[in-house]
């Protein structure tokens, strides 16, 4: 296996970068979308229920099925991969953002309004920073989840390490089939762990010391 890695280090490195870049970009996009939706939703219990319902139901849709559905209008390539990965990444962040924002102590919001902060300022300076640890937990869940989904996206010719797994599958029994699959799988696990550590550090750096657990 080591020879396999050394021989193909450039290809593997390239696919690893592609994989991580797909996941990171989609998670960033998903975070923006999810926080936007959560901000619209969290003040109304009805819309909050709807948002929670959508994220619960959305998570039940199998990723392979969604990728299949997306192939029809968009064809092979990066577009269905990005849409599917972003879709799944939105759901945990959305749920946590709604829970986090709704969990902000109302007396603090009143306090902020009471000293003359506008609604927008209250949201940006008080509510989002206080909800941030919960939102970040959602981002970590999302990231772990879509690392695996991105692997399946390789089947619709999306970029990333899934390509190694599928090439192993297509040449099963062949010389390097096992190596390719093993390298692809292990690389995804390792990169997922690295991303989790990175997010943990981001959390340390972006969470106020006053609310750190």
């Amino acid at each position: 296996m080591w020879d396999f890695v050394v021989d193909r280090r450039e290809l593997i490195a390239f696919q690893a970068v592609q994989h991580v870049s797909l996941v990171v970009q989609c998670v960033l996009l998903a975070t923006v979308i999810a926080i936007g939706l959560a901000v619209l939703a969290y003040r109304s219990p009805k819309v909050t229920g709807l948002a929670n319902g959508i994220s619960a139901i959305g998570l039940t849709i199998p990723s392979f099925a969604l990728l299949g559905i997306l192939l029809a209008p968009f064809g092979f390539g990066i577009t269905p991969a990005v849409i599917a990965v972003t879709f799944y990444a939105v759901l945990p962040v959305l749920r946590n953002a709604v829970v986090g924002l709704a969990g902000v102590d109302q007396s603090l919001v009143e306090s902020a309004r009471g000293i003359g902060m506008s609604r927008a300022a209250t949201l940006l300076r008080i509510e989002l920073p206080l909800a941030w640890p919960v939102i970040l937990a959602g981002i970590r869940v999302s990231t772990q989840m879509v690392m695996g989904i991105a692997a399946i996206a390789a089947y619709v010719l999306g970029p990333g390490l899934g390509g190694l797994i599928f090439s192993g599958l297509s040449r099963l029994g062949g010389a390097n089939a096992l190596n390719a699959t093993l390298v692809g799988t292990i690389a995804i696990v390792l990169l997922a762990l690295v991303l989790d550590v990175v997010l943990l550090l981001v959390g340390r750096l972006t969470t106020s010391k006053g609310i750190r657990v």
């Binding site: 695996g148 692997a151 599958l169 099963l172 029994g173 995804i188 696990v189």
Partner: peptide
């Protein structure tokens, strides 16, 4: 947890080999 981060498709193919 480490196992959970493993992509399902990788697990399938590895077990199949």
């Amino acid at each position: 947890n480490v196992g959970q981060a493993a992509p399902a498709i990788g697990l399938f193919v590895l077990l199949a080999t």
